[in-house]
Structures are given as structure tokens and as C-alpha cells.
Design a protein around this nucleic acid. Sequence first.
DNA 1: CAATTCGGGATCTGC
DNA 2: TCCCGAATTG
Length: 759
Amino acid sequence: MDESDRTPKNLAATAFFQMTGVGVSSEEYLSVLNPEQKEAVKHSGSPLLILAGAGSGKTRVITTKIAYMIDELGILPWHILAVTFTKKAAAEMAERAKHLSPNAVKSHIRTFHSFGSWFLRLYSSNAGIDPNFTVYDDDDMVTLLLKAVPSLNRQQASFIAHKISLAKDYCLTPDSSELSTIESSPEFPVYYAAYEKKLRQTGNVDFGDLIMLPVLMMEADESVRTDMHSRFQVVLVDEYQDSNVAQFKLLQQLVGEKTYVCVVGDDDQSIYKFRGAEVQNILTFHECFPNTKIIKLERNYRSVSPVLTVANDMISNNTQRLGKELVAVREKGKKPTVIFLPAQKDETKLCADMIEKAHKGGCPYSDWAILYRTNAQSLGFETEFLHAKIPYTVVGSLKFYQREEIKDLLSILAFVVNQKDEIAFRRIINKPARGVGGVTQDKVVLNAPNHDLLEGCRLFSSSMSKKAKTGVLEFVAFIDGLISDIDVESSEPGKLSELVDIIIKKSGLGEYHSNQDEIAGTQRLANMQELVNSAVLYNKNRSGLLEFLDHIELDRTLELQNQEDNQDAVTLITLHNTKGLEFPRVIITGLEDGIFPRKDKTEEELEEERRLFYVGITRAKDELYLTSCGLRQLYGRTEYMKVSPFLLELDPKHIDVVGKPPLEFKTLCSDTQEPNTQQGRLASFMENHPELAELADKWKKGRKVYHDDWGYGLIVQTNLDDNCSDYDDEYVINIQFESGSLKKIMPKYQSHSLMLIKD
DNA sequence: CAATTCGGGATCTGC
DNA sequence: TCCCGAATTG
């Protein structure tokens, strides 16, 4: 360590680290950064925009910056607010910052929505919402809207609900004059207003409110604004390219005269326009925040150069960009492979085969990720992998929390904390069937004093049919029991999981769901049990329950335990969900016109699809495969698919091709390179993979071998034989052993146990 | 009021 | 294909 660097602060920090035994010295964590990264970390004073390309060490820069501000600039950790978009990203950021500087745990590292939730609970009285509010998701919004505007059918309601959340993403209230830019129909403001009225009656909020309400409050109330300004001296925003207008306004409000603001993002990775993300936020940041310093991070540490070449090729087809070219730090590497397959089933089979072969050769399952455009595409892979006994994790498909049985339980919990919650009430009052139908429910909802639905049940039970009366009173007694359960004053409240367990048994939902379907019922019970398990961390009292509901609503990534248990598993994931992730080997599937890009896209939307493809490509560290099928099951039908226009945009020189390319693709290649057909395979394989030639030369058909486990054998076939149907571009040989078994082996990975026998 | 059946319509991405 | 809602029936 340079003696001259021992500033007083530095000494203090060093002393602290010695004391706690954790953390890294600032010299150390700064020394691993490149000059631009270091500049970004050390910058202070004016607003800062970091344009960080994929894999450019963005997270490292942010976390180091947090640590640096605490250790070197003497900023108190709780004066730092860092917001991200996903809980996963927030958790990772917190973890890495803590590793660099233990004090970082005291800083506010949150998602936008959890910040909003925290803010609204802090000021719930000002906002006119229930301090015990829960958050309604999209499905709840639709249900609520249907109740607010009964003339709508479900389809219309979900369309309008989507528009309402979009309006909130743009921070537009029902009386806003700009509302027509979201939806021009004259009824829309009326529907929106009716929805808002209904929502405020329940005391709850939707996702859009978590951002919009804090903005409106800060805009209207100076004392709230100054309170925030004194709480946070530093505001950092990650993935800024995906922020929406409401989030931009939130940032504007949070940044006072003395606040240091720093945003990080990549315009080429903006993929959430459909949900209100506004690329303009990042493109015009420097205009909104005067004297902005812009730092570009263009060195990519993640992907091998051939992968990055293809990524750069692809994104250069977009017109709406700031302009940025990633430079690979990792020079050597394999060209991405485009694989053309006859049908969907071949795609799943191919993936399974590739993964399994690599696994036999020592490559862990977790190295692989299968990317697809829509969640529905995961099903084929799940079936195939189950069959092939390949462990896998599906990221974010039918999310745990939105399964019917889970939503039922959560609705009971939500109703226990807030008896004005109409959505929860309607969901659970007659489930299992208690003879309480829509008519009875309406009577309660419309006449309940102060919208207290439980009180409504009590008051009107006498005027109900005998059957309904029994059911309603049974329900009231059940909920009353739960309420008194959590309101018991005790220094040792017990665990919330006990309460969830009781609910499953006493509500009859456990029985109800397990009787619904013999096979699925078991799974549903297991899911409910999983909710019990996750509640074990919370106290069995009102505040514990609130924390739990908050956690569930804002963390949409809760996965099933059995999936988490399996560390070594292939990742099945939508392209959108891969934001911020990386994998050694990536397969992007379904590259067909209409699937990816999805059909009916405007030119502008096509650019977003292309950015999505770019995001997918840049997830790959070492190997990238792109698959495209000729036939696919669609809407229950088998359809002929055209190749994705994105594949036609690729430079044939920068990729390898396996399988039978469709005509369009061949035409494209004809003047540059003859694509690999079945006949030309051997030659082109050799050309593209010199290392294969070496292997193929050694492990020739007809040679005798000895294997440690299987004994003596004869190489009877290789996958470079022209009649072989394997698509793989590894060198694979078939060996007939004397013991009788026929094995497929990759010599590349078997050098330790397989040897040639001289004739 | 609940269970069953039938037909139409959708099917993207997600905090 | 599958899911949802309207219509029909018990």
C-alpha cells in the first residue's frame, strides 16, 4: 500500500476492517477497475450518467461506488438510496456492496416498488390509504374493474386495466388531459375514475400507485419533499433505460439541490416499452439534469469475442440508439451456432442431447440456460427434460404467488388485515362453497358500513336465505378467530406459519384443493405447505403479517422449495427475465417469424424485439446457440414456420450453421459461403473447428479402444459420418464394447478414461 | 345456488 | 390446446 494514500479516513476505514474482520480495502477494490470504471466510481459533484454496455461490469461499478462513498467520502450509509428493478438485482447489489464495505448494509438498496411501499406506509395517513394496505396485482385490477364497471366483459376489462396501469406508469390521473395519449376512447377516463374510486374504498393500492402516489405527494407537499431530501443525500438508479415516466418523476422529486444523483443504464437493452418504460429518460437525462457527466463503459468482460461480434452486428440494425460498440476483452472463442431443425420436438430433443452430452463430459447443468420469447414455450422443454432426467429450474413462469391455491390463502391473510378488501372478500367468502353466491355478496358489499365487509356480513346475515346465513356466519366466525389470533398482545408472538397452517385446515381450502383434482391436488397441497414454510420467518402478529404480505407481493420470484434445492440445474427462462444475468452456455430458441420477433410488431416495436435479442445474445459467456424450427405447435395446430428475420440479419461469416437451412437463409448465404448441408458437413465442420479435426483424426471409425469402466471396444460410428443425424458440433463417437453395450462418447472429455489400442 | 356443458376466443413480455 | 364465461339443468 502506498504510504501517501493513508489519509485519516483511510486509516479509520482500515481500523474498522481490522476490527470487524470483513470487507475489502478501498485500494483493493479500486485496483481491479479499468480507468473508466474507476472514473465512474470516484466521480462526485454533478449528476452522473453511466452508459454501461452489457457485461461491462456495471454492478461492480455501482457496488464499488456505494462502498467508496461510505469509506472514502464519509457519507453515512443510510443517506444512500439505490434503486433497481428486480428484487434479485437488489439482493445481489446489497450482497456485493456489503462484501466491499460492511457498513453498506445500512444503506437503502431497494426495488422501485419496495421503495414506494416503504414510502406509502410512512405517509399512509397523508395519502388517504389504509396503513395496512396490500398490493393488488394485475388480475386483481381486472376483478376490481369488473366490479367498478359491471357493463364490461372480462376481455374489455383486462384491456382497460392494462391501459390504467399504463396511465399510472405515465403518472396520469383520471382527470389528466393527456390521458387520451394512452387511450383515446371517451369512456376511458370514466372507467379509470370508477376504478380509482373503488380501489380507494378498499384501502389498497395497485402496482402503479406504489410509484405514482409518492410522486403526487411529493409534488404537492413540500414538507414531504424536504424530509426525503434530508434522508437521502445520494440517489442511484440501476437499469435506468427501463424506468418509466412515473419513475423519472419520482427521481426528479427525490433529487434536491444538494442530492447527488447517478443513473446507470444501456439504451440498447431497453426492453420494457410495453409496460411504460421510456428510453427517452436515459436519452435526455443530461438535459433534465444540468451539468451531467457521461461515462461510457464499453469493455465487455463477459462474452467471448465471436459472440460479441454477432451481438454488435445485430444491434447495429437499430436506428434509435446513442451509439456504442462493445469491445471484447476475451479474444478467443467459438462462433455462435445457428441450428435449423425440422420441428419443435427436435428442438427440445436437441437441447436435451447437447446438455446431457456436455454433462457426461463434466459440464454442469447449471452452465446452461434455455431462452425463449414466451413462457408457454417452457412446457416442451420441461416435458423433455423430465423425460431425460435433466434437472431444470423454470424462472418466473406461472409464478408461485399467482397460483390459485396460493392466491386463496393470501386473500384470507389480506382480509384479516383489511376487512375493506373487496377482492379478497369475494374470492374467499364462497370457497369452499358455503352457499354464498353473487347476490348475497353484492348485498354485503353495497351496504356495508364504512366498507367494512365483515361488519356487513354480521349486520345483514339475518336477511339472508337460511343456507347463505349459515355460510356467512361460519365465515365471520372463522375470520374473527384469525383476527383475535394475530391481535393477541404477547412478547412472544409465535410464528406466522402456525396461522397459515390453521387457515389451510380450518378454511377448508386444503381439502377443497386436494379434492379438485387427484393429481394436481397433491401439488397444490405442497404449494400451500410451501407458503407455510415461507411464513416461518415472520411473527404471528399484525406487523409480522403485514411484512409477510409485503414481501410476497413485491417479490414475484418466490420459487418452489424443491426447485431451489437443486443447485445444479438448467435454467429455463424468458428473454425478458434474463436481464442482468449471464450463463456460460446459452441457447436462444424459437427463432421463427411470429414467435421471435412476435407477429404484428410495428417498426418501432421491432427495434425493441431486436434489443431483446441483443440482450439474449449478450447473456452468453462462452457458447451461444440459436435454434429455429420448420414446424411448431401453435394454438393447438401444427404450423409451418418461416425463419426469424433476425437470423437473416446475421452475417453468415460470423456464425456456424448446422442442420438444413431454409431457402431464404440459403439464398442469403449463396454469395458468401455455401451453408452446411448434410453432404458438406464433414468438410465444413473441419473448417470451422480445427480442434475437431485433430480429435476426428485420432478417434477414427474402426479403431480399437479401451475404456476404464467398460473395457475393450470398437469405434463403429462417428457423428461426422454423413448418415448420422446428430446436430451436435462436438465430436462424438459410438463404441461397441465387447461387453455388449453400445456407448456414445465424446473423446474430448474422456481423455482420462479412454485410450486407443494399437492394432 | 352449484354443477355441468358447450362454444368461442386467446395466446407476449412483467414490477 | 386450453381456459373462461354463458347457458342450461338439477
